[in-house]
């Protein structure tokens, strides 16, 4: 049941070197640099995104993810969900408006898989980058690199998948769109949606908590994914795997790493989900095909290389 959560709104990532990270996220993936703050953080977004930013980079000693934020409909929803998060047993913290430039009050909370999440109702809306909202042209002329359209979702690794599923379904109103079940009936992967996308966030079971697998950015076409692969070679960027297709969600994809080892994905296509749909199930004996539909086998790195 929908609870007033709208979409993934931002992700804050830690990088070892800001200039190298900007060469990756801004110049290669093609995100737009929107702002910087007095902590040295850099704010970016995909050109189709209406809110001011969706990716925040912070220089640190240890790469990985600080948090993912979801935008909710309004402040009434924010108040309501804050209470429900406390009731659920989350550690809840108020982050004052303005701590991120242009973002309103955020409600930060932990999760059974160890990841930190946030809800917020207000963020400055600067509109789609480079085009008008009246009689808009198809796209702006001067996009860079892969010309990523938006931050789409992320995949996180941790232990207590059932606990985090309960949090996202019962408190935040997400649906389980796709899952991987092992031979004992244990769920080892869960793809959750708050929209009609096959995933707005996903989790895979892993012995270590609070790990980050990838942040994903949306492209329009398979041709765009192939062109992204060319750009990865042109720039000698660290490749993980692809171009290929996933069995899960059926998205067409390529995976690569930022210069600090955080994994990025650009993808296109994929299944859709409505609230009356039963979850799509893959079984672990077909895990290779579920993850990499063409190779039909996993590479060790996909399960092990995390930040």
């Amino acid at each position: 049941m929908k609870k007033g959560v709208m979409r993934p709104g931002h992700i804050q990532l830690r990088v070892l070197d800001m200039e190298e990270a900007l060469a990756h996220y801004r110049d290669l993936i093609g995100l737009i640099e929107m702002d910087r703050d007095d902590q040295g953080r850099v704010y970016l977004k995909g050109w189709t995104e209406v809110d001011k930013f969706s990716v925040v980079l912070r220089e640190a000693d240890e790469p990985g993810m600080d948090f993912v934020g979801f935008k909710v409909l309004n402040n009434q929803v924010l108040e309501q969900l804050q209470g429900e998060l406390v009731e659920f047993g989350c550690q809840v913290e108020n982050i004052p408006a303005g701590e991120l430039n242009g973002c309103g009050r955020r409600v930060r909370f932990d999760s059974p898989t160890g990841h930190m999440f946030e809800l917020y109702a207000d963020k400055e809306q600067t509109g789609k980058w480079g085009i008008s909202s009246t009689n808009p042209d198809a796209f702006p002329m001067d996009l860079k690199g892969m010309k990523a359209t938006r931050f789409d979702h992320c995949l996180l690794y941790g232990g207590d998948l059932d606990g985090t599923l309960k949090l996202f379904q019962q408190v935040l109103g997400f649906d389980l769109a796709e899952q991987v079940m092992d031979e004992n009936g244990t769920r080892v992967a869960q793809f959750l949606t708050i929209s009609t996308k096959a995933h707005d966030i996903a989790f895979i079971k892993h012995p270590e908590d609070s790990k980050f697998h990838h942040a994903s950015f949306y492209l329009e076409t398979w041709e765009d994914v192939l062109r992204a692969a060319d750009l990865i070679s042109i720039t000698d960027t660290s490749l993980d795997i692809g171009p290929t297709r996933h069995g899960l969600t059926h998205g067409k994809t390529i995976y690569f790493f930022d210069p600090s080892g955080n994994r990025s994905e650009v993808f296109c296509g994929g299944d859709y989900h409505y609230p009356d749909h039963e979850p799509v199930t893959w079984t672990t004996d077909q895990l290779g095909k579920a993850i990499f539909y063409h190779d039909r086998k996993l590479n060790e790195r996909f399960l092990t290389a995390l930040t």
């Binding site: 790469p63 660290s238 600090s260 290389a305 930040t307």
Partner: peptide
């Protein structure tokens, strides 16, 4: 692994 100093592999 990542070839970027992040994953430790």
């Amino acid at each position: 692994g990542c070839r970027g100093g992040g994953c430790g592999m």
